[in-house]
Amino acid sequence: MGTLNAANTTVSAAEGGFHAPSMAEFFPASFLFEGTPFEMNRVMLIRIIATVAVVVLLAVWAKRMKLIPSRFQSSMELAMEFVTVGIAEDTMGKEKAKKFMPLIVAIFFGILFWNVTKLIPFLNMPGTGVIGMPIVLTLVVYVTYHWAGIAEKGLGRYLKDSLILPGVPPAMHILLIPIEFITKFVTQPFTLAIRLFANMMVGHLLLVLCFSATSFFLFDAANGFQFFGIVTFAGGMFVFILEMLIVVLQAYIFALLSCVYINAAISDEH
C-alpha cells in the first residue's frame, strides 16, 4: 500500500515540474509475492510477456513449417539462417556449431525480444535493462565455453592453451599469464554482461529524458521555451530510431561474442 501511495505522489508531483528519469524506473513497485524470490514487478512482467511472444512466434513458425514456404515462413527462415549460418557457423564452422546451436539461437531471439520491449508502446521498458538478465545470459555462456573447452581438451591443456601465448619469450609469461587470466575469466564475461545492460539501460533513460523534457517544455515551461520542446522531441525520435538499430545490434553482438568465446575455448590454435 505504501508503495502505491508513493507512486501516486510522485506522479502528482511530476505534473507540477520537470520529472527527471532515475534508476527507480528499473525497480518499480512489486505487485506479487513481495519479499520472496518470486517477487513480480512491471519489468519482470514485461520479460515474461516478451518470452511468451518469442516462444509463440517460434512455435507457430515451427508448427506451420512446410516444404514450400509461405511469406511468413520465408522471412522467419531468413532470420533463423542469419543466426545459424551468419553468426554460429561462420564463427565456429559447421560441425562445431551444431552442438551449441540451440543456445546461440535462444540467446539471439531471447535478447532481441527482451530488448525490443523498450520500443513498444505501453511496455516501454527493456527486459534486459535490469542487470539480472545480462548476468544470467553471461553466466550461461561463461559456463558453456569453459565447460566445452575442458571437455574438448582436458583441464590441463585447456588452461595451458587459454593462458600461455605461444611464441613469446619465457620471461614475458610472468606478465602475460595474469593478463590472459583476467581477460578470459574476468573481463570477457564482465564486458559481455555490462555491454548489453548499459546499452539497454542508457537507451531507455535517454528516451525517457527526451520525451519527459518535451512534455515539460510544451506544457509546463514558461512562454518562449516551447521551441525547445520541438528540439527535444526531434532528439527523442532520433534516439528511438537509433534504439531500433541498437536493439538488434546488441542481440547480434551478444550471440556473436558467445560464439567467438566458445570457439576460442574449443579450437586447437590459441
Binding site: R47, L58, A62, M133, V136
Partner: peptide, 25 residues
C-alpha cells in the same frame, strides 16, 4: 541483481532455450 531478477531471468531464458532446442531447431 536482486534474487527475483535472477530467478525470472533464468526462467525466461530456460523456456526460450527449451522451446528452441526441443522443438524449433
Amino acid at each position: 541483481p536482486a534474487a527475483y531478477d535472477i530467478l525470472w531471468s533464468a526462467v525466461c531464458l530456460l523456456i526460450v532455450f527449451l522451446v528452441v532446442w526441443k522443438y524449433v531447431l
